[in-house]
C-alpha cells in the first residue's frame, strides 16, 4: 500500500478500480475457494511430486526422527521393476482383463441402453436392477461371487459335468477371466447410464428416415445408433481401461491375493505388497508411474480409434 501514488489516494474511485483489476470484483471468492485449494495442494499436488521423488530415489522407511540419506538412483527402480517377472505378469494379467472386459462392456451396455431407451414399460425398475451393483460395495459383492463361483458353489452345481476343474477362482487360466466377468457385471449399470444420456442426443428424424428407407432394427442400430453415440463410446472405453488398471479389491479377496500363484495379480496389488507389506516404497512408486503411463497410452489409443475419420 505504501507505494500507491498520492494522486490515487486522493481519488478513491481510481484506487477501487485498480484494486478491482487485481483482485476481482468479489475478492471474497478467494477466501471461499481457499479450503478446496489447500485440499488439492495437500492431497494431490504434494503427493504427486512426492511419488515422482520416491520413484527416483533409494527410498525406505525409517524410524521416526531418524535421518538417513536416501540417494538419487536415476532409473534403477524402474529397471528393477521391469526385470521383475511378477511385475510383468501383473501387467499381462491386466491385458487379459482388458481384452475380455472392455469389448463386453461396450457391446452389452450399448445394447441394453438401446433396449431401455424410448418408452419401455417398467423402465425405472430395469434401471434400478442394472444400477444397483454399481452402487454396492465391491467387498459385499465379492463375498457373494466367491460363494457362487466356489468349487462346490451354485454355478458349478448348475453346470454339473460341465463345471471347470480346477474351479473358476483356483484355476490359473480362469481366475483372471472370472474377475473380468465380475467387474463387467458390477460396472455395467454406470455405462448403461452414460449411453442412455448419449441416446437422448441422437435425432429421432434419423431413425424415421432410415425406417422409410426400409432399414430393419439391426440396420438402424448399426447405421444410426452406433455412430450417434460415438463420443460416449470413447468415454466408456477410457473409463473401462482406467477401472481395469485399478483392480485391487477383486484379486485381493476373490482370488486370495492374486492367486493361484500370481495368475490374477494386478499392478495395484503389487504396489500394496511391495510398498507396504515388504516396505519397498521406491519400487512400488515406480510401478505406479509405469501403470499411469500405460493407462495414458491406452486411453490415447482408444480416443484415436473412436475419432471420426
Amino acid at each position: 500500500m505504501a507505494s500507491v501514488p498520492a494522486t490515487e489516494l486522493r481519488d478513491p474511485g481510481r484506487l477501487r478500480a485498480s484494486r478491482r483489476r487485481w483482485l476481482g470484483t468479489q475478492p471474497i471468492g478467494s477466501l471461499f475457494s481457499l479450503p478446496y485449494l489447500v485440499f488439492v495442494l495437500v492431497i494431490f499436488a504434494y503427493p504427486l511430486g512426492f511419488a515422482v521423488y520416491i520413484a527416483f530415489h533409494d527410498y525406505f522407511f525409517t524410524a521416526p526422527g531418524v535421518e538417513v540419506a536416501k540417494p538419487f538412483v536415476g532409473l534403477d527402480n524402474f529397471v528393477t521393476v521391469l526385470t521383475d517377472e511378477r511385475v510383468l505378469e501383473s501387467f499381462r494379467n491386466t491385458g487379459v482383463f482388458l481384452l475380455i472386459n472392455v469389448p463386453l462392456t461396450v457391446v452389452l451396455s450399448m445394447v441394453l441402453a438401446t433396449a431401455l431407451d424410448s418408452g419401455v414399460r417398467w423402465a425405472s425398475a430395469y434401471r434400478i436392477a442394472f444400477y444397483v451393483p454399481y452402487l454396492t460395495a465391491s467387498v459385499s459383492l465379492v463375498g457373494v461371487w466367491m460363494l457362487l463361483f466356489s468349487s462346490g458353489g451354485l454355478i458349478n452345481s448348475v453346470l454339473g459335468p460341465l463345471a471347470p476343474s480346477p474351479s473358476w477362482l483356483i484355476s490359473s487360466s480362469l481366475a483372471m477371466p472370472t474377475i473380468a466377468l465380475y467387474v463387467t457385471w458390477k460396472q455395467l449399470g454406470f455405462y448403461i447410464l452414460l449411453y442412455l444420456a448419449a441416446l437422448q442426443n441422437v435425432p429421432r428424424e434419423l431413425h424415421e428416415s432410415a425406417m422409410t428407407d426400409g432399414a430393419n432394427g439391426w440396420q438402424r442400430f448399426r447405421a444410426v445408433t452406433v455412430p450417434g453415440v460415438r463420443s460416449a463410446t470413447t468415454l466408456v472405453l477410457i473409463l473401462a481401461i482406467i477401472t481395469g488398471a485399478n483392480l485391487f479389491t477383486e484379486p485381493y479377496l476373490l482370488t486370495n491375493g492374486g492367486g493361484p500363484d500370481g495368475a490374477s495379480s494386478t499392478p495395484v496389488l503389487l504396489i500394496y505388497q511391495q510398498g507396504i507389506q515388504q516396505q519397498n516404497p521406491d519400487t512400488a512408486a515406480a510401478i505406479g508411474m509405469l501403470l499411469v503411463i500405460v493407462v495414458g497410452l491406452l486411453s490415447l489409443t482408444a480416443n484415436r480409434l473412436t475419432k471420426e475419420s
Partner: peptide
C-alpha cells in the same frame, strides 16, 4: 489416478 498417490 489414486494408485499413483497411494504410497506417498
Amino acid at each position: 489416478p489414486f494408485q499413483l498417490l497411494m504410497i506417498p
